[in-house]
Simulated assay, not measured.
Amino acid sequence: MNTTNIDKQNSHLDLKNKDVQNVLSLYQDYAEAPYISPNRDLEEWLNSVSIGSGNTVPKRNMIRFEEDILPGHLILLWRINFGTFTNTSVFPKYFEYDYGINAKQALDEVQQMGYAKELSATDSLTHLNAAQLKAIFKQFGLTGYSKLNKTELMELAKEQLTEEQLAPYFKIRGYQLTPAGEELLAKYPEVIDRHPKKKY
């Protein structure tokens, strides 16, 4: 049973549970066991692996780089770099089942490490549509915006409203790589090269 680095992602696991033991045994020769969600039906997953319809996480995805991050962290940074990832985005299952990471935790970690940052409300305006922007203007009694397109509405918001005024009116926030995050992503291109690509 592999308990190496178990405190990093799997401190919630009950090591006395037989299914947990069986899962960790599958990763006995890995650098560490991948993240196992508390919501995963372990018995069902173990059965799927045994009959070949399910897969274990590739061994290479559970080897940490010198920065103490896993390949899955890099895939998360790659996703953020598209500019469409927000605090309302759904994490694809591949983070857990192919990369062995807790994506929600990883998002906090890459921010704490200085590789990514959550954007302000002002810098997250691009994630709103024109109708939402106009609704905010209406709340402030602004006029002359009815015929403006989204780009013009965003510029008007930045000119007329402060961060403190905007922030309470919408919760969505984007994320952005820091220069350190960009450098890290460029350092390990092989991880991104192996990842199945689709347009985000």
Rank of each mutant, 00 (worst) to 15 (best):
L74Q: 09
I75F: 09
I75Q: 06
I75H: 04
L76Y: 03
L76P: 02
L76H: 06
W78G: 08
W78F: 15
R79C: 08
R79A: 14
R79M: 12
N81F: 11
N81L: 10
N81E: 11
F82D: 13
G83W: 07
G83C: 15
G83N: 08
G83A: 09
T84M: 09
T84Q: 13
T84N: 12
F85M: 04
T86E: 03
T86R: 05
T86G: 03
N87R: 05
N87S: 07
T88K: 02
S89Y: 07
V90I: 12
F91Q: 11
F91K: 08
F91N: 08
K93W: 12
K93S: 15
K93Y: 13
K93L: 15
K93T: 12
Y94A: 13
F95N: 07
F95I: 07
E96N: 11
E96H: 09
E96Q: 15
Y97C: 10
Y97K: 14
Y99M: 13
Y99I: 09
Y99P: 10
G100D: 14
G100R: 11
I101P: 07
I101Q: 10
N102S: 15
A103M: 10
K104T: 11
K104Y: 12
Q105L: 15
A106R: 02
A106D: 04
L107M: 10
L107F: 05
L107I: 01
D108G: 11
D108S: 14
E109W: 02
E109S: 03
E109D: 13
Q111F: 01
M113P: 04
M113Y: 06
G114K: 02
Y115L: 09
Y115N: 00
A116L: 02
K117V: 01
K117P: 01
K117F: 00
E118V: 05
L119S: 06
L119N: 06
L119C: 09
L119A: 05
S120P: 04
S120A: 09
S120I: 03
S120M: 08
A121Q: 05
A121H: 08
A121M: 09
T122Q: 10
D123K: 14
D123N: 13
D123L: 13
D123W: 06
S124V: 07
S124T: 06
L125I: 10
L125S: 05
L125H: 05
L125E: 05
T126C: 11
T126K: 11
H127A: 03
H127M: 01
L128D: 02
N129F: 00
N129R: 01
A131N: 07
A131Y: 00
A131D: 00
Q132W: 01
Q132F: 01
L133C: 06
L133W: 01
L133N: 01
L133H: 04
A135S: 15
I136G: 00
I136M: 02
I136Q: 00
F137D: 02
F137W: 08
F137H: 04
F137L: 08
F137R: 04
K138S: 10
K138A: 14
K138L: 06
K138W: 07
K138P: 04
F140H: 14
G141E: 11
G141P: 09
G141I: 07
G141F: 09
G141K: 09
L142D: 08
T143L: 08
T143G: 12
T143Y: 10
T143A: 12
T143Q: 15
